[in-house]
Design a protein around this nucleic acid. Structure first.
Lengths: 196, 196
DNA sequence: GGAATGACAAATATTGAAATCTGTCATCGG
DNA sequence: CCGATGACAGATTTCAATATTTGTCATTCC
């Protein structure tokens, strides 16, 4: 399909995502990707050195999309406490929506996550940075206390404390009926912790 | 070996643990357990209706042992804030020690955990109960604020917030060099949240 | 009488031969 | 010249035949 267009890394990544969606992480092959693009698999290897590198790039794209979807919540105007709750709720909502809407895709994603921990670490740093910014603003506004150590550590603690509500490893729990209450309780705990 | 002793559920459970340790969850069979005990596998089925029931019983025993090891920390005398930190540190320490000391056994345990979520849920309720007791004592002492909703909810939030440091799903992270700092930061966050 | 046995059917796991996939590279074609 | 190709070797996966395991139960043994 569309074999006339030039073969770019971008097009290969799109095809790879499609193949991963359709066949899952175990069955998706480079040959499949090449077939979708109507090229030989050798051509794919011109753009990505290995299958692992290809999957890593897909993982990166996927995670980057989450960061972009969250940015508005990180940067919206208003009191820091509400921004933090909004951001955490948005993160949980995004994840839960994705996990609930397409559990197979989530499972695929989870496998990729597991294969690319370095990429995930960078992504987590990115998200923690967004929290740090909100916490720092809150401190300037006087609604959050000074951090025990520094903003990065506090932000990291907030991220870790809410782990159960964003780590895909816990995706199975997100359909429990009382998960909303549990989330609210932890957010409330975090908010109390940050108060001056 | 010791085929003269009467066959009890207890002896079967011990043999099952040994087989699980030796062969792992995928390869451990009821026939192996019977062989260790020097009996026919039919005899094992007299005490446990299914292989699943046998594994569930092993899981229960295993978890119960954790609760017992933690009880001293839950019941020790002293200020509630220190008891809470002590309890959380003990839980993390126990888990980390087990995961670090015998990663294969931990992996086996994790599989059993996944197979027996009902047993795990009961175990978690038990642990949350220990936290609730400490938090309630703290409130009586005046060192912890009144809970937003009730002690059980607050205790659950504390348990959830520290999830990353006791859930076996995260065992792989526990050997990271800065895990101790991350743990301390979350405990500090929790302590601040509970202050009046 | 009641615990233990072992033969058995159905379900599950193992195995190894055949097929497919990954990654390379000499060659092709525009 | 430069991206694309497809044949190829070695690694990995699939698939179907074979073996093992699970769970039952009529029979045995103390």
């Amino acid at each position: 399909m569309a074999a006339t267009e030039t073969l770019t890394a971008e097009r290969i990544l799109e095809a790879t995502e499609e193949v991963l969606r359709r066949y899952g992480p175990a069955k998706a092959t480079v040959v499949d990707v090449a077939r979708v693009l109507g090229v030989s698999h050798g051509s794919v290897y011109r753009h990505f050195r290995t299958k692992a590198a290809l999957r890593e790039a897909v993982t990166e794209r996927w995670l980057e999309r989450t960061v972009v979807e969250l940015r508005p919540y990180a940067e919206e105007p208003g009191p820091a406490a509400e921004r933090l709750t909004g951001w955490l709720t948005a993160l949980f909502g995004l994840k839960r929506h994705k996990a609930g809407g397409d559990p197979e895709l989530m499972a695929t994603f989870q496998v990729l996550i597991g294969e690319n921990s370095a990429v995930v670490d960078r992504h987590v740093d990115h998200l923690v940075g967004q929290i740090a910014r909100i916490v720092e603003d809150g401190h300037r506004e006087g609604v959050f206390a000074a951090p025990e150590r520094d903003f990065a550590t506090t932000a990291r603690a907030v991220f870790d404390a809410t782990d159960r509500f964003h780590d895909p490893a816990h995706a199975g729990d997100w359909s429990a009926p009382d998960i909303g209450d549990a989330f609210a309780a932890v957010v409330s705990l975090v908010q109390r912790a940050l108060r001056p």
